[in-house]
Design a protein around this nucleic acid. Structure first.
Lengths: 167, 167
DNA sequence: CTTCAAACCTTGGATGTCCAAGTATATTGT
DNA sequence: ACAATATACTTGGACATCCAAGGTTTGAAG
């Protein structure tokens, strides 16, 4: 999108924070801004890898979740909780997945409110190809050392836990 | 949006990765997914804090950048590079900021292509209030220990550097 | 000086995310 | 039973982000 800068813009912002007297918040500001920026980087790379498959990362996550579930189906409410996105975001993703016959909405046998999501065989096929690509092109070459990956996960797990993501 | 889960869904996905034979990629997958999820958490909190001020986080960042610049003005292309967003995203943010008289687009004195962004005095006032709130409510209580903040920033700085964010 | 490529910005379109509201179905409490 | 409440999903609207394409202005090359 834009070439590399000569200085880290977040480090620069951190200095401004310090020089304006907000030193106590400078480290947290820098860390949080870095998380946001890093997420944008990963997301862009993932989207680039998935685009040839006609998938977005959000839709890939839905497929992957269904692929792991034992029956290959689960209620939308359940999926939305596991993926930690708003129900409306899931509705949006499922609309697009269903239009491509990668998933199906089926009626719940006993609860009329609930719709079960079911991955189709075309969905499974595409999932395997997309996952292979992500594993090769993103998760194998993530620019993170093994040690950094583990530390990053642990720090963020503490954060997510104290933010109410899980118990 | 949804209550806490009984298990960390990312840890769960990591186990699936391992049990399906993608152990080599499991840690990176978990770390990257955690970054994406954490970014969503921070972004939501920031938006909640800024909403009463009529600002989004993206627009806050534009205001903050202009507030730091010595003259309070700089070219859009420069701002877009520093904020590391696409030029079109900045156009969008500036349209909304300008509609509220928080910034102005002014002609560049010598280059007819370039538009200078200039923060207004109303923009400065709002920026100070919004920043005070973010400092108090987000950056002071970020659920990250001081040590975690520093480590997180450093790990992500390595990542961003090797991803071409800066030299 | 004329032409053509590069740089800057905007417009239009596709996606994704959230919130507020609305519809339908289930469950609870009296 | 019936009314009130809760849960599940969808719809419509506000924003954000990107890409592809188009208009304007510069600047460089011939």
């Amino acid at each position: 999108m834009n070439g590399p800068l000569s200085r880290d813009p977040i480090a620069q912002a951190r200095e401004e924070w310090v020089s304006h007297g907000w030193e106590a918040q400078a480290d947290a500001m820098a860390a949080i801004t870095a998380v946001l920026r890093s997420a944008a980087i990963f997301l862009q790379r993932a989207e680039g890898i998935l685009k040839p498959h006609g998938l977005s990362f959000a839709r890939f996550e839905v497929l992957a979740l269904l692929g792991f579930s034992s029956r290959g189906s689960l209620p939308m409410s359940h999926a939305s909780r596991l993926l930690q996105v708003h129900a409306t975001s899931l509705t949006n993703s499922v609309d697009r997945l269903e239009a491509k016959d990668l998933v199906r909405r089926v009626a719940h046998p006993s609860d009329g409110r609930t719709r079960l999501l079911e991955i189709t065989s075309a969905g499974r096929t595409l999932l395997e190809q997309a996952r292979a690509d992500l594993n090769e092109q993103l998760f194998s070459d993530s620019k993170l050392s093994a040690e950094d990956s583990r530390q990053l996960f642990e720090i963020l797990a503490r954060l997510r836990r104290s933010s109410g993501d899980f118990l």
